[in-house]
Design a binder for these strands. Structure first.
Length: 348
DNA sequence: AAATCCGACAACCGCATCGGA
DNA sequence: TTCCGATGCGGTTGTCGGATT
């Protein structure tokens, strides 16, 4: 783009002439007004999309063709979907980004109504922020593991929660966790994605995943990572519990931070007044499964130990307490991920 | 109540690519 | 084959509104 033709019969201008013309036209910049939006929409309604520079000259808009195109594609186009990204969409973005990196427009093709700009902003404001808080690079394997093992399951829980009956289930049977895992049917994301690509269809994964239990062995950002699937594992709620326990001082778990140590204290448990029975019947995972599946908001859990000490803990897991972006906003989440990754040798 | 901070998102900028002359 | 306008893409900046101090 180093040279341009001198103005000739085709009406092509030199750079200087172009600058002068721009100056005369006083090209507008910054936010679009309602009048400009109407002008643009009317012009496109009459003449269709494309030929953006021509549009800019002929529509009466004092904008560049680029600016017109961007305004239309990112904001005015009728099929643009507004509002927060759904958990399904967030999950898809995470998954596709792990495959393709910053190929925003390509990712956007799989989210009907969402623009590349919107997805890019989402990534920068939400995802990269979490990476910063974890003090890792957003493209690092460590962070991808955190996404895969913590964030994605959380989103899946939300998706599952939205699709199920809101009434809490009865207290869990023993080994409830294993039963849930066994009930999950496997889902291969890559296969699903390939089918969708072949048909140009929207890729929305089903709610049920099958887990790859070895996060630190995750491979490249390619197909293996994408194929990693998930079960409803105990998630960040576990660590919230853990923090509550440690900070309370009522039940000293020795700082190990594992709920099962505390739960194994002889005694009884109750949740919002509902007797859950002897504490020793509960492993951390069965209890957490129950909490995750039954508590849509906060709940008060009480533990009475054999020695008569009572401890009450406010459980803040479940869908209701983690609506929206809170999933990732909380400091506990970051600390949790950091600690877990440390356990895996993630080296934060 | 005012000042400041911060997150979200719209918009801009520079570069790459494509296609027509 | 070369040139150059049009378009697309990704990175960055600017602006605004809500939250916090």
């Amino acid at each position: 783009m180093s040279q341009r033709r001198v103005a000739g019969p085709m009406g092509v201008m030199s750079k200087q002439q172009e600058a002068m013309a721009e100056e005369m036209m006083e090209l507008r910049r910054g936010p679009w007004t309602l009048e400009e939006d109407n002008l643009l929409m009317n012009y496109i309604a009459c003449h269709g999309e494309g030929r953006w520079n021509l549009l800019a000259r002929c529509s009466g808009l004092k904008r560049t063709g680029k600016s017109c195109r961007l305004r239309w594609l990112n904001y005015l186009k009728p099929d643009i979907k507004r509002g927060n990204l759904t958990p399904e969409e967030q999950l898809l973005i995470l998954e596709l980004h792990s495959k393709w990196g910053n190929r925003w427009s390509r990712i956007a093709q799989h989210l009907p109504g969402r623009t590349d700009n919107e997805i890019k902003n989402y990534w920068r404001t939400r995802v990269q922020k979490q990476a910063r808080q974890l003090k890792v690079d957003a493209n690092s394997t460590v962070f991808r593991d955190a996404v895969r093992c913590y964030w994605m399951p959380r989103l899946l829980e939300k998706m599952a929660g939205a699709a199920t009956d809101p009434t809490p289930p009865p207290p869990p049977p023993l080994h409830h966790h294993a039963a849930m895992a066994a009930a999950s049917s496997p889902f291969d994301f890559d296969t699903h994605l390939q089918q969708a690509e072949a048909t140009s269809a929207c890729v929305v994964p089903p709610n049920v995943y099958h887990i790859d239990p070895s996060p630190s062995t995750s491979t490249s950002a390619g197909s293996t990572a994408a194929a990693a699937a998930f079960q409803p594992v105990p998630c960040f709620s576990e660590l919230r519990w853990d923090q509550q326990m440690q900070s309370s001082g009522e039940l000293d778990d020795g700082g190990a931070g594992v709920f099962v140590d505390s739960a194994s204290v002889l005694g009884s448990l109750s949740l919002d007044g509902l007797d859950l029975g002897p504490a020793e019947y509960y492993s951390d995972s069965t209890l957490l499964d129950y909490l995750n599946s039954s508590c849509t908001g906060s709940a008060m859990m009480t533990m009475m130990t054999a020695s008569g000490n009572a401890g009450s803990y406010n459980y803040c897991g479940g869908g209701g307490a983690m609506d929206g972006d809170d999933t990732w906003r909380s400091d506990e989440v970051c600390q949790a991920a950091a600690r877990k990754l440390g356990e895996w040798g993630g080296g934060i």
